[in-house]
Write a protein that binds this DNA or RNA. Structure first.
Lengths: 151, 151
DNA sequence: TAGATATTTCAAACATGACTGAAATATCTA
DNA sequence: TAGATATTTCAGTCATGTTTGAAATATCTA
């Protein structure tokens, strides 16, 4: 397979990962492409310029996206002495973090449910509706807490 | 507490639920408000007109949203003989369904990962990166499959 | 069937937020 | 320090998808 055929294949895969990120996690397309590329690129560490080039986005967009991705801990910024360009690589546990965060943010519903139960009083079908929601949303969190992923 | 104070409190709660739905599930605000209202309203069955009035949305918007919510099985449409209005109530297992669907849609990543492994061959750090992602994403699904929620 | 009321459709308005280009700034080499 | 290169900022553009009003349609009562 020629180099550019292989490159094409990589890019199509990156696009699939990006689509997945957009649908599942609500990330912007470019952010998804960056993550996809950082998963499959060689070498693992890439400069913003390299990434911008390969996924066809502007450097400006890369700047804000890389800041975001490093801020939330999905990507690590690497600097090398005597080199003015920064390099980025995806964190080993990036996806684990994504899922963990998602589970944690579900806990926001706990407070909402409590407030709801307070409003409708302690009895009746309204109470049941709220409790059902609360149980469903805490179910996964409890599961995850009891069965952490080991790698 | 006066009736309108109570109503205000209900509406503020509905707004919190809506915000949660928007952030966590990417639903439109009005869809979230409908779900919130259907969780806390009395009686549990409400007409599109009643809902539109209380959450301050147009009937047109209600039509499309109720169709959507019934189509995905979160809301049940109830018709009564000799009454031209349709009534809607939230399904008992609505939230369970939401979560279940979310977990199922994660499985899309399985195929993406397989394709990725195929592209990069069977060895090296690129393989590790893809496998790490795959493991994280299947972890929750396996957990959920092994420990279903009983109500 | 006629009249009244509720629902649905659809084109257009609107809001939101991603993305970019250009200018400003920072960081390196010589 | 001067020059070269990379990064960051920010205001404006653009695309996407939600919401609405108005007209058309359906469903009921008498």
């Amino acid at each position: 397979m020629s180099t550019e055929e292989q490159q094409d294949r990589l890019l199509r895969w990156v696009e699939r990962v990006a689509a997945f990120c957009v649908e599942e996690w609500g990330l912007p397309p470019i952010t998804g492409r960056i993550l996809g590329w950082l998963m499959i690129c060689d070498p693992a560490e890439q400069s913003a310029g390299q990434i911008a080039e390969v996924i066809q986005a502007s450097r400006a967009s890369l700047t804000s996206n890389m800041r975001f991705l490093t801020a939330i801990g999905l990507v690590k910024k690497v600097r090398r002495p005597g080199d003015r360009t920064s390099y980025y690589r995806i964190e080993d546990d990036a996806w684990q973090k994504v899922i963990q965060r998602k589970l944690e943010s579900l806990s926001a519903f706990g407070e909402i449910a409590d407030e709801g139960l307070d409003i409708v009083g302690g009895e009746g079908h309204r109470t049941e509706r709220i409790k059902a929601a609360h149980d469903s949303l805490t179910w996964l969190q409890n599961l995850a807490a009891r069965h952490p992923l080991r790698r």
